[in-house]
Design a protein around this nucleic acid. Structure first.
Lengths: 221, 221
DNA sequence: GACTTATGACTGACTAGTCAGTCATATTTT
DNA sequence: AAAATATGACTGACTAGTCAGTCATAAGTC
């Protein structure tokens, strides 16, 4: 009945064995199904029976790969976020080249990355899940702060600091509140999930206008 | 038609009831308890048994005042939001006085209102609940869009439009994206609920810096 | 290669627990 | 004493997590 390629799940906390024999392995099937289910219903209302159904897997199988519902959830968020963090750090590292990228340009690149790699993909649902479930998952909030927020904002803040010292920035606003760069992006994600059907929002144009607002002022000396 | 002569349940003494309806005090007791419970646990995980306990009321009593859990939730959000909407409209109406308030000043007033009446009070939990539960409650999202978002942003947008025509604003960014005014405020609310213990955020200073960023550019001609 | 035995990934009925909503009864008010 | 209000034990629906058993495949034997 079940035409499955053989695979060998290790213990529940194992790392993914990448062997896309005849399609995704079970672990990835489950993660994909979990993304659908969690982003449609949120953590509390998501049913593991439905995750199993979506993944064409028995419920028990989920517990061969993940310790419990919460582990599945957190693992999902982690695996989806990591690649974007890599990209973000690559973009921010661009400022260390021989010819330094102006902060203004860097900000545009960060905004583009966010629009294209997050808002424009299913990953926006991941961010939405972090925003909506974070307050109820202290562990998740802490992980996310440590691995994403403090690293991302920290790198940007350091770069902004340098821009102030070198006269590229007149005010230290972005050093004190690097959150200002991404605030409209987060708002755009929530807007899209709630109000887009009443009033569509062009996230790319929003971010462009926003970054220009932040830097136009600085350009005139 | 009794007034406030209840003795057994300890209610806030001397609280005026809006209508000469009986039992208004219990109703408000339940709403207050519901605010605690829902903002601590979110809608799905909030237990009505606990709401009842917090309100010093039996569970059945809740059903004398509210149809079901969802009604209680929505009613809570509505009653908490209305007064702020009133204040917001009063602030925005300031632009219609004989001596028109500059848009820049208006923006600062809106930001202050938000910081003082929302972020600085328990109402920030209400906004957080709307953000976190909204995607799962289409009816709530629609109500909130109709009654709050479209009205608030619409009024601001109209005022910004006038500012453009009269030369007060050079660009139409704020007409196209009035969301930019409040985006950092929403981010601040989420930040406070998740990351404030790692890195406190001064919401008032954030908003001040943000508004100045938006308008400094416009000031120089 | 055919036959036997071993393995462990996978299954899904089941358990144990949770909680929204009900209602027969009790208490308070008029 | 009738009406209004309040109670909380109870029910029924729902679901996370379990585990004894299945079976496709691998490994061992002749």
């Amino acid at each position: 009945m079940r035409t499955q390629a053989k695979n060998k799940p290790k213990a529940a906390a194992g790392k993914p064995a990448r062997r896309p024999e005849q399609g995704m392995d079970k672990r990835e099937l489950i993660l994909a199904a979990a993304l659908d289910e969690f982003s449609q219903n949120g953590f509390a209302l998501a049913r593991l029976d439905d995750v199993a159904k979506r993944a064409n897997v028995a419920k028990g199988t989920i517990y061969l790969y993940f310790k419990d519902k919460e582990s599945l959830f957190q693992e999902l968020l982690r695996t989806q976020i990591s690649p974007v963090m890599g990209m973000l750090e690559a973009v921010l590292a661009g400022g260390k080249e021989a010819k330094p990228v102006p902060l203004r340009e860097l900000a545009h690149r960060v905004a583009d990355l966010f629009v294209e790699q997050v808002i424009g993909t299913r990953r926006k649902d991941i961010v939405r899940l972090i925003l909506t479930e974070g307050p109820r998952f202290p562990k998740l909030a802490e992980f996310y702060y440590r691995e994403v927020i403090s690293r991302g904002l920290g790198a940007f803040r350091a770069r902004a600091q340098r821009a102030v010292k070198e006269g590229e920035l007149k005010s230290d606003t972005l050093v004190r509140f690097p959150q200002l760069i991404v605030a409209p992006a987060l708002t755009a994600i929530m807007w899209k999930s709630m109000f887009d059907k009443f009033e569509p929002l062009d996230a790319k144009a929003l971010m462009k206008a926003h970054i220009e607002n932040l830097f136009d002022k600085e350009e005139r000396s």
